[in-house]
Design a protein around this nucleic acid. Structure first.
Lengths: 337, 337
DNA sequence: TTGAAAGCGCTAACAA
DNA sequence: TTGTTAGCGCTTTCAA
């Protein structure tokens, strides 16, 4: 086996074709100003030698890389990967290549990835994560545009952001359940991250606005599961802070013999694949993830062009499926149960 | 906004610290042979200027990148991303950085990614996908080691491979169902890809060996769903070629009022997150995905070291959960239903 | 211990 | 239409 990285270079091609480096470089790109026959010969030789241009050297010489970096917090989250799809679509249609980096649900690793992407000379970085330290974002953004998709604790100045309106999402969920006649609507949440905080606060506010403040109750996942086996103490509906929590709750309900939605209505958040696949299929608050990806890349583009930093807020919407139904004895739109 | 990619360089640091480029380079790496105070000053200046070494330039000069590339076929598959986790673990502990590239379930895109990683001068590439053309693999492998995790149609010579024993997996599934007294065991599959083919063939063979050939039946997903509403024609057990198919089938059974596992036992393949999350939780054939990732990177290492190409075959094992139970009237280990 | 100089693979003036 | 030359940011001899 030969030494690593030894591939034919532009010089090899030039020698073999009997021309100069520059001509090869030209011929293999625009092709402008190169004689047709010379060009053909060069292309042929390159092909035959299996020559591939070295991106790094090219970027180095050109002074730009046409490359953007993405740090994904969690490759295992359909929510995150959908956003990545969106970014990739937009980037591709704009002639940008993408290098992906996995933060592995760990802010420290994410910071390292951010750094390492920086070292690779990407022209901009999109961070798909709420779990990232503001100092790391700040440092990264000193030498190139950075856009974050999600809701970190603090977003330093100069950094673009795309996020969904978590308060609106929570309101949609609670209103939906209240409209179905539920009064004991609990909120299951397990995190203190900003997105979760917003949902929690909006939940409380909405309950109050609906005159249900006395029934408001915030539960950790474990506590929620424990409640299931307590017929008197169990709420009739739950707004879960995300689909995973909802899924776990529905699973636990099944195990405890509590019928969903008959005895317990459940709303999730994010409308991931899960929501559709679960039985009963989950009512959930949808974020238009691909679109969020597109917008993130658009932000990158405008930052690269020197425009003002923007913060885009996306409106979520409620997708009603089978995990929610009218409260016992309640009449909706003329139909009583 | 300044021009893209303009970051402080080693020269800026050298100037500011009043030393030469080389000294900066030395000081910022090994630190060997640089005066302590000089070194301190250099580090300080670098810090203050926000200097980050440019990986590309460094690799170019050094002749190697310490970088490996991964092409993932499907970022949305927990199966694939677990393998990626494994590769990343192993790579990190060996001092290799990883750049990830998304094939987006499209062999053409995957080929482009392979190419583009090649251009980035990665020292080796791991392809996590069965859906990749042999010609593309071959071309990529001409200039660097390539390892594929999965089971493409053909694996060209010189390419490392890690795959699970699909035949064994299928046998485990069928034997499990047969041991529970099932005779009408159908196989649901939707693909003609090699891994699926192996499972299908092994399914047929095993049915035959068990004297159940006359009950063997291969169904497309749609056909399987249609069967659910036909009490007489419905098999009592299904071995699905993967967890997704199993999930869809269990969902359809739920919708059709067919009890799983009471009236229908279901076995999946891959043991993804899904299997645990579903209700009833899914019995599934597990592939040790992280371990497969580790092994893939180990193969990369040995190829880089000039060793022989290897093909590792991993033994899957059956994880029994709640979606399978004894056939009606059957006695297992002294317990009858 | 430090610096000068060559070179990694490529691009982009500028000349010929 | 072609070739020459000077870098891009870094590492690495080799001298001083």
């Amino acid at each position: 086996m030969t030494s690593p990285l030894r591939r034919p270079t532009i010089v090899d091609v030039a020698k073999e074709a009997g021309v100069s480096k520059s001509l090869v470089s030209l011929a293999l790109r625009d092709g402008q100003g190169v004689g047709a026959s010379t060009r053909r010969r060069i292309v042929e030789v390159a092909e035959q030698l299996g020559y591939r241009s070295n991106t790094w050297a090219a970027s180095l010489a050109r002074g730009r890389s046409h490359l953007i970096g993405i740090v994904v917090n969690d490759l295992h989250s359909g929510y995150h990967t959908d956003i990545v799809d969106g970014i990739e679509d937009a980037a591709a249609s704009d002639g940008f290549a993408v290098v992906l980096s996995h933060g592995r649900r760990d802010p420290v690793i994410a910071a390292a990835r951010l750094d390492s992407l920086g070292g690779m000379g990407v022209e901009a970085i999109v961070v798909v994560s709420g779990q990232i330290d503001r100092r790391d974002l700040e440092r990264a953004s000193r030498s190139r545009p950075v856009v974050v998709v999600g809701r970190p604790h603090e977003v330093p100045e100069g950094i673009g952001q795309v996020s969904n309106d978590d308060r609106l999402g929570a309101r949609l969920a609670v209103h939906h359940l209240a409209a179905l006649g539920h009064r004991r609507i609990a909120h299951v949440t397990s995190s203190r991250r900003p997105a979760a905080e917003e949902r929690r606060e909006a939940y409380l506010e909405t309950m109050e606005q609906l005159g249900l403040a006395e029934h408001a109750e915030i539960l950790e996942p474990d506590a929620a599961v424990a409640r299931l086996s307590d017929p008197a103490g169990c709420p009739s509906a739950v707004f879960a802070a995300n689909d995973r929590l909802a899924r776990d709750l529905v699973g636990a309900a099944f195990d405890a013999g509590v019928d969903v939605p008959g005895a317990l209505s459940v709303v999730g958040y994010d409308d991931t694949d899960l929501a559709r696949a679960l039985r009963p299929a989950l009512t959930s608050v949808e974020q238009p993830r691909r679109d969020m990806g597109h917008r993130a890349f658009a932000l990158v583009g405008s930052l690269l062009a020197g425009d003002q930093v923007r913060h885009e807020v996306i409106e979520p919407r409620l997708v009603v499926r089978d995990s929610t139904t009218a409260a016992a004895g309640w009449t909706v739109a003329g139909v009583s149960r």
